[in-house]
Design a protein around this nucleic acid. Structure first.
Lengths: 230, 230
DNA sequence: GGAATAGTGTCTTTAAGACAATATTTT
DNA sequence: AAAATATTGTCTTAAAGACACTATTCC
C-alpha cells in the first residue's frame, strides 16, 4: 500500500443545484449570474462550497446556497449525480455534487425576477445561453431524471401549490413529460398513492368546481410499478 | 457575497465502491481490511482518495481502487450516492462518493480468498461484522438499488459469465430479489430487450441442453416500463 | 340552454403471472 | 422409461389508455 503515505491534492469540491419550477406551460430552471472568475458574468447553477461550520451535510449545503442566492427553500430536493474531471474547471481537477430540486412558482414569486443576479430560464431557451462550466450537461441530466420520475412517481406535485386540483397537477406533469396525459390515469394514481387528502374546499376553474387536494403530512413519494404514457 | 472571500476547509473527499457478485445462492459484497487509522483492522469498502495524476474522473478512481486492492475490473459500475457529514469520520467533515458495481464470480476467483486483506462476505452475514465508518449503511443503500434495478432492468446479467443460460440468469436474479421468478417472464424480457444474442452452442444442465446467450457488443442496459414480481 | 371544465364508467390494450404441455437430454 | 431441466403455448390478471358519458358551474 505505497500510496497510503502519498500526499494527495484534495480536489475542489462544490455543490450545485438544478431547481425546476413550472409556470404556465413552461418548465423553468433557476440560474444565477456568476460574480467571480472563472466564468465571471456567465449564467450558472446556484451552488458553492461546503461550509463545515454551518452545514451538517451536503444536503444542507445545497439548501443553504439556494436560500442565500434566491431566498427559496425547495419543496423537494434529492441528489442527482457527481460530475468530476480535469477539464470541467480551468483551475484543475474538480468535483461537483449536483442536486435536483422542485418548487412551486407561487412560493418564489416575491424574490426572483426582482434580483438581477437570479432568473428563471425556460428549458428550451438554454440552447442559446452560454453557461458556466459543464452546467448545460448537468441540467440535461437533471431534466432527464425529472422526466423519468414523472412517469413512475408523484414528484411533480412538488411543483404545485400547497392545495392543488387534479387539473393543475395534470398540467404540470404534461409540461414536464411534454405529452398529453389521461386525466383518468392521474386520478387513479392520486387515489392509489394514498399520499393526498381531499381538502374541504373546491375552487372555480371555468366550469364545474374542482376538488382541492393537499399532501398528507410526512408522506414519502410513492413509486409505481409501471410508467405512464409509455 | 461575504463568503466569497472566506477560506473554506475543503472536506476530505474519497471514493468507495460496493462490489456485488452472486455465488451459488448467495449475494456477496467485497470487503477489504483497513491497514491504517481510523478503523485500523476493520472491514471496509474498497476505496480511497482521488489521484489527480492518474484519474480522469471519479469513475476511474473507483475502478483503479478496486483493481489495486483486488485485481478486479467490474463488468458494471455506476454512481450510487454521496454520503457526507461531520460524524461519519473521526477526522472531521468528510464526503464519500460511493459506487455500485457488479462482477461475475468467474472473473474474480483467482484473486480473492487467497489475499487475507480482501474477502467476499454474504450480505446477511454483515449484521454481525463491525464495519468501518458508515459502510454498513452504504451497503444497505447499494443493496436496495440493486434490488430495484433487478426488477426493471437487465443489470443482474453483469453477475453472469460471458456466456450464460436463461436458468443461470434466472437464478442470479432470484438471489438478488430474494423471491422466485417466472422463467417465462425472464425469457420475454431477454427477447424484448434486444440486448442479447444466442450463442451457437448449448450446454448441459441435468436435463435438456440449454441455449447460451451473450451480450451484444456495446449495448446499453435496457429499462422496462414495468417491474417484475410486484 | 351552451360552453367549459370536473369527474365517472367501462371497454380495450399491454405486459406480467400462472401453469400446463411439449422437448430434449442423462441415467 | 423416469427424472430433470429447457422451452413454448395460452389463459388470467393488473394497471394503463381511450373515450363516451354524466355533473356542475358560469355566462
Amino acid at each position: 500500500m505505497k500510496d497510503s503515505k502519498k500526499e494527495f491534492i484534495n480536489p475542489l469540491f462544490t455543490v450545485d443545484s438544478v431547481l425546476f419550477t413550472v409556470v404556465g406551460n413552461q418548465l423553468k430552471v433557476l440560474l444565477v449570474k456568476r460574480a467571480i472568475e472563472p466564468f465571471n458574468g456567465r449564467w450558472a447553477l446556484p451552488g458553492g462550497f461546503v461550509d463545515v461550520e454551518q452545514d451538517d451535510n451536503t444536503d444542507m449545503t445545497a439548501q443553504r446556497k439556494l436560500y442565500e442566492k434566491t431566498g427559496i427553500t425547495p419543496k423537494y430536493l434529492e441528489q442527482l449525480k457527481v460530475f468530476s474531471g480535469l477539464n470541467r474547471d480551468p483551475r484543475g481537477f474538480s468535483v461537483t455534487l449536483t442536486y435536483f430540486a422542485l418548487v412551486a412558482y407561487e412560493d418564489t414569486e416575491p424574490h426572483i425576477n426582482t434580483v438581477e443576479e437570479a432568473t428563471w430560464t425556460e428549458i428550451n431557451e438554454l440552447r442559446n445561453l452560454p453557461l458556466a462550466f459543464d452546467h448545460r450537461e448537468i441540467i440535461e441530466a437533471a431534466f432527464q431524471r425529472l422526466q423519468q420520475k414523472a412517469l413512475y412517481s408523484m414528484v411533480p406535485v412538488y411543483c404545485c401549490a400547497e392545495k392543488f386540483t387534479v387539473g393543475q397537477l395534470k398540467s404540470v406533469i404534461e409540461v414536464i413529460i411534454n405529452k398529453p396525459l389521461q386525466r383518468k390515469s392521474l386520478m387513479r394514481r392520486i387515489e392509489a398513492s394514498g399520499m393526498f387528502k381531499e381538502v374541504d374546499q373546491k375552487v372555480q376553474s371555468g366550469g364545474r368546481l374542482a376538488q382541492l387536494y393537499s399532501l398528507k403530512p410526512d408522506v414519502d413519494v410513492v413509486h409505481f410499478e409501471r410508467n405512464l404514457g409509455a
